[in-house]
């Protein structure tokens, strides 16, 4: 089939139903923008989680300094529970020295204290990503059961809040993904159906003068494809503009500094574009099959 003939028919279709075409384009664009926006947040949170995870350590305060044999046993128990980057045992004296270093010029306030007044402790550096941050509580609970453990300390509040927020974003991501699927397929499908209805007399004449199925269907298919290409392209372009605006306006200390915003990687952008185009084309095919009984 001639490409020029398909293009002429497609342009004719678009001109006849331009109002609904613009509505559909706007809906597809908005759906892609919403989905990709939450995907961008999710991705950046995940990166932030990984960065946060790199700095996380759990401190297990002990009631007494374990012997070398006990230390080996504790190491083995911890490693058997989860992947750990590093385990460091600190004696009471080590803790005292560390506190002195931290106090800097005010270290003399400790002069009258016993160098062993602080409890010995273990520093545990777990290997983790954001997805396992929600399980950090379990790890902390386990560490509390170690022999001689008195207290386990870590940034529980932060980790919990980040975990809940990530779960929420994941939920929104699923919902917006569903919205994208629904709008792309149903809106495009409805628009194509409208095109078919508005052009029914013309399609009937075409059928009577011997137009092939592909001659009649290809322009409608191209219409859906164009909606997908333009809608997803505009959606991603809007996201990029929004991203630049956010970077420009929130490029200071605080949460955004911690997040160190990065845009969607090219592969992910390509995947969102491809899936959107596929969904719109699918909507178009569904509508053609339903509306055109040739």
């Amino acid at each position: 089939m001639k490409l020029s003939a398909i293009l002429i028919q497609t342009v004719r279709n678009l001109r006849q139903t331009w109002g609904s075409q613009i509505m559909t384009l706007a809906t597809v664009t908005l759906s892609v923008l919403i989905f990709s926006f939450f995907f961008l947040i999710f991705l950046n949170l995940k990166h932030a989680g990984i960065r946060l995870g790199d700095n996380i350590r759990l401190l297990v305060y002990l009631d007494h300094q374990p012997t070398a044999a006990a230390q080996a046993k504790i190491r083995s128990e911890i490693r058997s529970f989860g992947k750990v980057d590093k385990i460091v045992f600190k004696s009471s004296r080590d803790a005292f020295a560390q506190l002195k270093r931290q106090l800097g010029p005010d270290r003399d306030v400790l002069d009258d204290f016993d160098p062993e007044f602080l409890p010995p402790f273990i520093e545990v550096y777990p290997l983790r990503s954001l997805s396992s941050l929600s399980h950090i509580n379990n790890f902390a609970n386990f560490l509390a059961t170690l022999p001689g453990a008195q207290k386990v300390q870590y940034g529980r509040g932060w980790i919990e809040r980040l975990g809940y927020f990530t779960q929420l974003i994941r939920l929104i991501l699923f919902l917006s993904g569903g919205l994208l699927v629904l709008t792309a397929t149903f809106m495009v499908s409805s628009t194509i159906r409208l095109t078919v209805v508005s052009r029914r007399p013309e399609l009937e004449i075409m059928r009577l003068i011997g137009a092939s199925r592909s001659y009649i269907q290809a322009p409608l298919l191209l219409e859906g494809l164009l909606q997908g290409v333009l809608g997803s392209g505009l959606g991603i372009a809007c996201l990029y503009l929004l991203f630049n605006w956010l970077q420009h306006h929130f490029n200071g200390p605080g949460l955004f500094k911690l997040l160190q915003l990065t845009f969607l990687p090219p592969a992910m952008t390509g995947a969102i574009l491809s899936v959107s185009i596929l969904l719109c084309t699918t909507g178009s095919i569904v509508s053609i099959r339903k509306s055109l009984r040739l």
Partner: peptide, 11 residues
């Protein structure tokens, strides 16, 4: 259907 389409082109 394909033959019908070709026939209609000839009428």
């Amino acid at each position: 259907p394909a033959e019908m389409q070709l026939l209609r082109q000839k009428i």
